[in-house]
């Protein structure tokens, strides 16, 4: 008998791997080598979801490519540190590649290093170039890696919406080809409803956070699921 094995990677979010568990194999987590959209209203924990997904991977030696468009590197370090996850170590160990597309806008002077690139939310083309470099950098370190884009919201604000859909399409194709698993966040209502529909169609999995419930609207090998969650000082916990 053939058993379909949808490979999964640990989400890093306590409780999520249990509710996504495959009835046949008992395995749960995010299907490997797919793209997942995490969306919802503002301030419901989408970025925290990202930190946990990143940290969960790093602690398993899965490197991570991180694209920042809403907050800069300083803020990322601060926010993760609040949960007790220090990134410096991983940056030093070359496990993390960061594309910071927002700090330059606020005028903060930052120096590009081997695994840190500055870009601009005004310039999706430049982001794509840096992403290409980052993808090569990370995928050379491990055939299994994670890639986070947090978030599309600012990109939509500064660019033509369909351009962002096209860029996102190219981004997802690139990460899939390199063997990575992508996570993309988006604030509900920040783009035209048609564009929002397209977004959900471009990705493989869709997860909604509304402040109270986490809803898996679509995921390979797992039906629709809904569970309450809360944000603690250890991050999101599914109850």
């Amino acid at each position: 008998m053939v058993i379909n094995l949808i490979l999964r990677i640990q989400s890093g979010i306590p409780g999520l791997d249990q509710i996504t568990a495959d009835s046949k194999t008992g395995m749960g987590g995010i299907p490997e080598n797919t793209a997942t959209l995490v969306y919802g209203p503002p301030k419901v924990g989408k970025s925290i979801f990202c930190y946990q997904f990143m940290h969960g991977g790093l602690s398993l030696d899965e490197p991570c490519l991180y694209v920042l468009t809403d907050y800069g590197i300083k803020q990322l370090q601060q926010n993760t540190s609040d949960f007790g996850w220090e990134l410096d170590n991983y940056i030093e160990k070359e496990m993390l590649y960061i594309v910071d597309a927002i700090s330059s806008i606020s005028g903060t002077k930052i120096i590009n290093t081997e695994n840190f690139s500055s870009s601009s939310v005004h310039n999706p083309t430049d982001i794509m170039v840096k992403l290409g470099v980052g993808t090569r950098y990370i995928s050379q370190r491990s055939p299994r890696f994670r890639s986070i884009l947090d978030s599309l919201t600012t990109l939509f604000a500064f660019n033509q919406e369909l351009l962002i859909v096209r860029v996102l399409t190219a981004y997802i194709m690139r990460i899939r080809e390199a063997g990575g698993t992508a996570l993309i966040t988006y604030t509900e209502g920040s783009a035209d409803v048609k564009v929002e529909t397209m977004l959900k169609a471009v990705v493989d999995n869709v997860i909604k956070l509304d402040g109270e419930y986490l809803t898996i609207e679509a995921m390979v090998g797992c039906g629709q699921k809904k569970a309450p969650y809360k944000i603690t000082n250890e991050g999101i916990i599914i109850e």
Binding site: G132, T135, T169, A170, M173, R174, R176, E177, A178
Partner: peptide
Amino acid sequence: ALSNFSGA
């Protein structure tokens, strides 16, 4: 129609 974006 899409793999031309994959970088490979």
